[in-house]
């Protein structure tokens, strides 16, 4: 996928948007902004704009998908038609089916599902504007929305991507880097234990490069986790001070 016209790394080692190889894009999070949802979060990460809402635990339909021993965490990742350069046809495509699945799996690892047998916890992730790294941004927002909904969890879920561009392992690819780079490594973790709940990779990397990318994404995820905690405190500490709900 190399494109000779675009140079992704400058002479001084910085990237096309001026970042260092291990530097994150700006991230902003807000918790609890939707009226009807049981929990919600909004996240901006670089040019990504992502809304997550949680409904549930509620009765599982279709019924045959009920699990008698635990709740099913059912995430749906969806991209708005206007979120990308060329209009995306509405509705699920194969990519979003797969991403919904890996995000559901990652969130299930954190939620104490055994507390709500036979129910479903619906998590809707709407990508309003996409700028690379949407699955991890969506996962990070979704876990905030679950916390906002008061769903008991072992931990928040947080992640980051790393990748390779022009032979250099870098953190948090932007759109151009994702399009013309050589590899993409999304990683999701439980920050308290460091366990890995989401891990995908595609591209071309040596073992050493992949391990470097994993370390980079892991360390960044820990940093983003601190932002998550702050975003939750911003809402709930304030409520507590004001007498709370």
């Amino acid at each position: 996928m190399e494109n000779k016209d675009i140079k992704l790394i400058n002479e001084d080692g910085t990237r096309i948007d001026g970042r260092r190889p291990d530097e994150l894009r700006p991230i902003r999070m807000k918790v609890g902004l939707l009226e009807r949802a049981d929990g919600s979060a909004y996240l901006e990460w670089g040019g990504n704009k992502i809304l997550a809402a949680v409904y549930g635990p509620r009765e599982m339909y279709p019924k045959h998908q009920q699990d008698p021993a635990r709740a099913v965490v059912r995430a749906r990742y969806s991209m708005a038609p206007f979120s990308v350069d060329e209009r995306k046809r509405p509705g699920p495509d194969r990519r979003s089916v797969e991403l919904s699945m890996v995000i559901s799996n990652a969130l299930s690892a954190a939620v104490l599902t055994e507390e709500f047998p036979r129910t479903v916890i619906d998590v809707f992730i709407e990508v309003l504007q996409a700028d690379a790294g949407t699955r991890i941004a969506g996962l990070t927002a979704a876990s905030l929305a679950l916390a906002d909904a008061g769903i008991p969890m072992r931990d928040l879920v947080v992640g980051c991507t790393a990748g390779k561009i022009e032979g250099v392992v870098v953190l948090d690819l932007n759109k151009e880097e994702d399009n013309y780079g050589e590899a993409d490594v999304p990683l999701g973790i439980l920050p308290r234990t460091g366990e890995i709940v989401l891990f995908q990779m595609d591209g071309m990397m040596t073992e050493e490069e992949l391990c470097t990318a994993l370390d980079m994404a892991y360390n960044a995820a820990m940093e983003i986790h601190r932002m998550q905690v702050k975003a939750l405190k911003d809402v709930y500490m304030k409520e507590a001070e004001e007498g709370g709900e």
């Binding site: 890996v102 366990e195 890995i196 995908q200 071309m204």
Partner: peptide, 19 residues
Amino acid sequence: GMINAVQKGLSGTFTMDEV
């Protein structure tokens, strides 16, 4: 020794060392 694709599946977890 090139790696081209990774997919972690199911809802359990791996440690970094295991990976």
